[in-house]
Design a binder for these strands. Structure first.
Length: 878
RNA sequence: AGGCGCGUAGCUCAGUUGGUUAGAGCGCAUCCCUCACACGGAUGAGGCCCGCGGUUCGAGUCCGCGCGCGCCUACCA
């Protein structure tokens, strides 16, 4: 047996066990075992963006608690680590960190090496796509190390031999395989269509990545002419799109405008003839009840335009600037082309915000309406609160820009996708509603193409037509057996590389996939879908998907989509959702708010066990305020475990030395039987809680009973176990201490893996199974041989009397060891019977004079079992 | 504007299918260095369970209506 230190030093202990676990391969998945014995976790691959905060620690601990329990009930755990290192966050981070931008037209420079610039160096270097991707690789490798260090520090029981990165060959291959499979199934298509577009990132974005932000906008009231006489007043927040106006619409039932339907309006400044039409989406209550439709001011415009058959007048470019246009030529016809051109030239090349102001100025000038002498702008612009769509990572509002994009068909599968959601168990259950709402509310297919550089390329080329342009109707797909490919450097099947970009040859699809197109495949990535059937069958569908609730509409949704499309299955049986960490003002902790607490200092100050304890107290789906007080409680628990264990081990060592711990068959004393009985309940409750992923309830039950064990049982049993001769009473005490502590260590192991492992190693570990984390989760059958106590309330009766004795001493300001000269206990027959078998233990613990005790018939006080009268000795003998 | 969740001690949170006098920890107060532990321990004071109605013998718990908070959808005329 090892030397037991007198103080618990968490740094040393944690370091030791981190190394041991690695050496022992404690957390390794065994690929030879069948699916039924396996518990598979779809570990969230964190976005490798260099920022770590306590939110990460929080949710990853939740997974680990569940995993550690499953491991102890005998499951073979598949708990890999993935890294989400492709996509925009990485690109952006690399750009900022290294001061580079990607220009795909540049040739690769083999001598270029990524280097961090000084903080004051704001210069930007243009590099080729391949150089850029290499730079991303270097930066993410560093970030991944930081994450790995944190995870290991925290004691996550990940299998570090099983890792993937979403940009690695394996993941690119699976992503491309998925794409090709969807092509074969007809679930993917590419089309040129107005798409939500971020003007800074210069890429299309999907519905799920869009958020509405409140903005203070201005309503401009603008006069439009009506052909044949009269005029209209249009209220708009986007006067800069006046040149893109294709129609004016009002509600079909709106009597004010019914006479105008079928006529034409004439726009100010631009002099465009546009039809006045009825449209259901026009709200008579809003603005003037009549509005202009532009290409494109908002999603409604897009939808309406698609069914209108009217020409497209695109005036916003991919960079967010107003495009030039030739007025007088289709589709920019004008009753006064020269005036229109003059007006438009004023704003062409400006960003939207500037163009808006300039157009407003022009509208305020006399003669802004062709053929009119009046001014088009009526009154001052009126402030209005509007909600504007932004890319969630973007800083400027999205525009609708017609571009060619790849889409996955989801709109036509809503019913099936809802049904898939019903087959999955959500924890907490009400989170399923969020999924259902999201699916219900879908209004666009999933746009999976991004006009970026760092991502998984589409395995696609196009035939180059006689006009030298790609023929998008003739895509050439990569061979499935030959993935991954990069169409920019690889040659499509049946072609040679000298045909690249040549007439009659091929050209590469330059886009990369949405990062979710890859991370939606984390189960398949892990199971090696399509490349290793045997492994796939052992890992898919998975048991749990742990994640935060804010990405139900993205990660959970897309993963369900892919699993359903590829194999008609659900990707996992359970989704377990962690809440958020809130700062003390109850705001979500996030990098952008600057209220982030970094976890490293907490781990050092309070210990990994203490931080895990804090996370474990939060129930699934519940947001939790960041509260350092909870770390302290966790630390106190660890210390208590250490000290209580020291006590037990000192007793055991004194009695049996290095010999075997006494077995449960020696447990005979009534107090000990009562404790074992309580442990049966604890085991039962904790097990049931863990079986439904409710680690927080399990912790509460275990922790409460552990403190009771320390505060009451240990005090009651102490003197019996101190006895120097080998009596049945002492043997029973030692056997109970040994078994109960062993059970507690196992029950607590998922929560506080370091201190429990340390203590376990002193006396419980055996050579075959050295770790508490691979020991068996406690079961009631272990104490089958231990009889039930005669009275249900024995333990509580003992605690009650002892509490009164302690209270009396405390109120008298005496030490707890002070002698009780007289003790009178009055209670009912039932209660006296419950107490009597353990009275001796109580008297010893309370230091009651043997000849001063009377127990008599009576009634308890105020809901108590007993009336206890305590008389303290005048002086403490000796 | 709809939907979901929440509102319990100064703070952080438990409160199973409605059932005696509503719990824990932190914090606070007072005391105790007793051979596991002062990185302790004992004891104690703190509650109109958001409000108003209703169902019931009985409501923190169920129903309705409010109020407040968070989130998810929707909303650029």
């Amino acid at each position: 047996m090892a030397e037991i230190p007198t103080k618990y030093k968490h740094h040393e202990v944690e370091d030791k066990w981190r190394r041991k676990w690695e050496e022992w391969a404690t957390y390794r998945w065994d690929p030879t075992l069948p699916r039924e014995q396996t518990f598979v976790v779809d570990t969230p691959p964190p976005t490798v963006s260099g920022s770590l905060h306590v939110g990460h620690v929080f949710s990853y601990t939740h997974q680990d608690l569940i995993v550690r329990y499953q491991r102890m009930i005998g499951k073979n755990i598949a708990y890999p680590m993935g890294w989400d290192d492709n996509g925009l966050p990485t690109e952006r981070r690399v750009q900022n960190l290294l001061g580079i931008r990607c220009d795909p037209k540049l040739p690769y420079d083999p001598n270029w090496k990524p280097e961090k610039k000084g903080k004051k160096d704001k210069s930007i270097d243009e590099v080729s796509r391949r150089n850029f991707i290499e730079a991303c690789g270097v930066v993410t490798a560093e970030d991944e190390k930081a994450f790995e260090h944190l995870w290991r520090h925290l004691g996550l029981s990940l299998d570090w031999t099983d890792q993937y990165a979403t940009i690695d060959d394996h993941c690119r291959g699976i992503s491309q395989l998925s794409f090709l499979d969807l092509v074969e199934r007809g679930e993917v298509y590419n089309v040129e269509s107005p798409t939500m577009w971020d003007i800074d990132f210069k890429t299309a974005v999907a519905q799920a990545e869009v958020e509405d932000r409140p903005r203070q906008g201005l309503f401009y009231d603008i006069r439009f002419g009506v052909e044949g006489g009269g005029e209209l007043l249009i209220a708009t927040t986007r006067p800069e799109l006046l040149g893109a106006c294709i129609a004016v619409v009002a509600h079909p039932d709106d009597e004010r405008y019914q006479p105008l339907f079928g006529k034409f309006a004439v726009t100010p400044l631009y002099g465009a003839r546009v039809p006045i039409l009825a449209a259901e989406h026009a709200d008579p209550e809003k603005g003037t009840g009549i509005l202009m439709v532009c290409t494109f001011g908002d999603a409604m415009d897009v939808e309406w335009w698609k069914t209108s058959g009217l020409a497209l007048k695109q005036l916003i470019g991919r960079d967010g600037r107003v495009l030039p246009a030739n007025f007088g030529e289709a589709p920019f016809e004008s009753v006064d082309a020269a005036a229109a051109q003059r007006a438009h030239d004023e704003i062409a090349g400006l960003f939207v915000s500037k163009a808006k102001k300039r157009v407003a100025e022009l509208l305020a000038e006399a003669g802004s309406l062709p053929g009119w002498t009046g001014v088009a702008l009526v009154g001052d612009p009126r402030p209005t609160d509007q909600m504007v769509k932004y890319y969630e990572k973007g800083d400027r509002a999205l525009e609708f820009v017609p571009t060619r994009q790849w889409f996955v068909r989801v709109l036509e599968h809503k019913d099936e996708l809802l049904a898939q959601g019903d087959k999955i168990q959500w924890h907490p259950a009400h989170m399923k509603t969020r999924y259902s709402h999201w699916v219900d509310g879908l209004n666009q297919d999933w746009c999976i193409s991004r006009q970026r550089y760092f991502g998984v390329p589409f395995p696609v080329w196009y035939v180059v037509g006689a006009d030298g342009e790609p023929d998008f109707a003739q895509p050439i797909y990569a061979d499935k057996s030959n993935l991954p490919v990069d169409p920019l450097t690889d040659t499509p099947p049946g072609y040679s590389d000298d045909q690249r970009d040549a007439v009659g040859g091929f050209t590469a699809e330059p886009d990369v996939m949405d990062t979710w197109a890859t991370s939606s495949l984390t189960p398949q990535i892990q199971s090696h879908w399509g490349t290793d059937d045997e492994r796939h069958k052992k890992l898919f569908p998975m048991d749990i998907r742990p994640q935060a609730h804010d990405i139900i509409r993205t990660w959970a949704f897309y993963t369900i989509v892919k699993a359903w499309m590829h194999s008609g299955e659900i990707p996992w049986y359970h989704v377990v959702l962690s809440g958020w960490i809130l700062d003390p003002d109850r705001k979500k902790m996030s990098k952008s708010k600057g209220n982030v607490v970094t976890p490293d200092d907490l781990l050092v100050e309070y210990s990994s066990d203490a931080v895990r304890y804090w996370a474990a107290r939060a129930r699934l789906g519940t947001d939790t305020a960041f509260d350092p007080a909870v770390f302290k409680i966790g630390k106190r628990l660890s210390t208590k475990i250490f000290n209580a264990s020291r006590f037990v081990f000192m007793q055991l060592e004194a009695a049996v030395g290095d010999g075997d711990n006494p077995g449960v068959e020696s447990i005979t004393e009534p107090l000990d039987l009562a404790l074992v009985e309580r442990m049966r309940t604890v085991i039962d409750q904790a097990t049931r809680a863990f079986d439904s992923f409710d680690y927080a309830t399990a912790l509460q039950v275990i922790e409460d009973s552990f403190w009771s064990f320390c505060d009451h049982y240990l005090e009651l049993v102490k003197l019996r176990s101190y006895a120097e001769e080998d009596t049945p009473g002492r043997r029973s005490a030692l056997a109970t201490l040994s078994w109960t502590l062993g059970a507690f260590l196992r029950l607590l192991a998922p929560f506080v893996p370091f201190v429990t492992e340390e203590v376990w190693s002193w006396r419980f570990a055996d050579d075959g199974r050295p770790s508490v984390h691979t020991a068996d989760w406690p079961v009631i059958a272990e104490v089958e041989a231990v009889p039930h106590p005669d009275h249900e309330e024995t333990y509580q009766a003992a605690v009650e009397v002892l509490t009164v004795i302690r209270g009396t001493k405390t109120k008298a300001q005496k030490s707890l060891r002070w002698l009780v000269s007289n003790l009178e206990i009055r209670g009912s027959e039932r209660h006296r019977e419950a107490l009597s078998p353990v009275l001796e233990d109580v008297l010893r613990a309370g230091n009651v004079a043997a000849d001063g005790v009377t127990v008599s018939d009576g009634m308890g006080l105020e809901g108590q079992r007993f009336e206890v009268i305590v008389e303290l000795a005048d002086e403490m003998p000796e």
